[in-house]
Computed example of a mutant assay.
Amino acid sequence: MDTFALVVTIAVALGFTYTNGFHDSANAIATSVSTRALTPRAALLMAAVMNLGGAFLGQGVAETVSEGIIATPEGSQGMGILFAALTGAIVWNLITWYFGLPSSSSHALFGGMVGAALAGGTEVIWSGILEKIVIPMFVSPVVGLVAGYLVMVAIMWVFRNANPHKARRGFRMAQTVSAAAMALGHGLQDAQKTMGIVVMALVIADVQQSGDEIPVWVKIACAVMLSLGTYAGGWRIMRTLGRKIIELDPPQGFAAESTGASIMFGSAFLFHAPISTTHVITSAIMGAGASKRVNAVRWGVAKNIVLGWFITMPAAAVVAAASYGVIWLVFG
């Protein structure tokens, strides 16, 4: 039974990674597609390949997820908690995907972990939640907004005397690089989050003793599932990011993607903080768009997106807690 529970939990974790891929693929490529720097299929293929590569760049984020959010639960109850946490995250991902709302898969996972842990009587490491999730949740969008604005202002100043048509063509080509960097950062951040969950499941099942090591097969499985999900595409969310917030031009797209990629790499390597790629790129798009005129950004759409950010964790937590209750009634 324990082996069966482990296999099912890992399968659901990989399923979450797949939904993460098609839910968040828009993060890396929406701006490039909307500015016609890349065709949709070429952009998705590039993003899938770069996601795969990014998954192998580190493991600091995975260690934070596996050891810094909730205490590792034990036995069959512990496996039930992980299963419920993943269920909460997947359900919320599907709901927000259906409505085209670019919410955070990362915060859906964290909310699911907290909700399931509270329902199952497992300790929640509130200091880790505050330092690694809540503070970055507020700081990273602000940094993305300000940095996106400043990068775009710098671009406008540097190229103020350039031929507009040549500059746009050049930035359209440069977006291939900036979109690839975004996809690499997405792989670095989001594949590791599932790695952390799988490692926690292996520790609960006594397959390994601690969460310090990530088996190679876990890295490969999570990376491949994220890439497959990315290639499946998230067209609903892509339209929101690429068109509904602001009509992006190639320089703005490059500024937003460069900003987002830099923040994701910095947070992963310097702080091991599992930030939301959705929050970062959305705020960077807003900042880059506001550099020309503030009313260029459709702030009503932006308001709905920000509202989605705030309700994601509690909503996923409620679904996860309810899922754990069902598991307890059926198998408890």
Rank of each mutant, 00 (worst) to 15 (best):
T277M: 04
I90C: 01
G234S: 13
K193C: 00
M137A: 14
D249Q: 10
D24H: 09
M152F: 06
M286P: 04
N27A: 09
D212M: 13
T312E: 05
S178V: 03
Q77K: 15
L6E: 10
M200L: 15
D249C: 07
S258V: 14
V319C: 07
D206E: 15
A5T: 08
Q189V: 03
E213S: 15
G121T: 07
S283D: 11
I311G: 06
A28F: 03
A174L: 14
V318S: 09
P40Y: 10
V280F: 04
A261K: 09
W328Y: 11
T9R: 01
I129G: 00
T72I: 15
H272V: 00
K193W: 00
I81G: 06
S283W: 07
G196P: 00
V146M: 13
F4H: 10
T17P: 00
H165M: 11
F16C: 00
E74T: 15
A296Y: 09
S323R: 07
A37R: 10
G233L: 09
V8D: 02
I129T: 02
G144F: 05
R41W: 13
S291C: 07
H279S: 10
L307Y: 13
I133N: 01
T240G: 12
G332Y: 07
E247T: 13
W157M: 14
V61L: 01
D212P: 05
A62M: 05
M1A: 14
R160H: 12
A48N: 03
W157S: 15
V318E: 06
P73W: 04
G144M: 02
L82F: 05
M46V: 11
Q209D: 15
A288M: 09
S178F: 02
K292V: 12
T230H: 02
W299P: 05
V203P: 07
I311N: 06
K244F: 06
N27D: 12
S106Q: 04
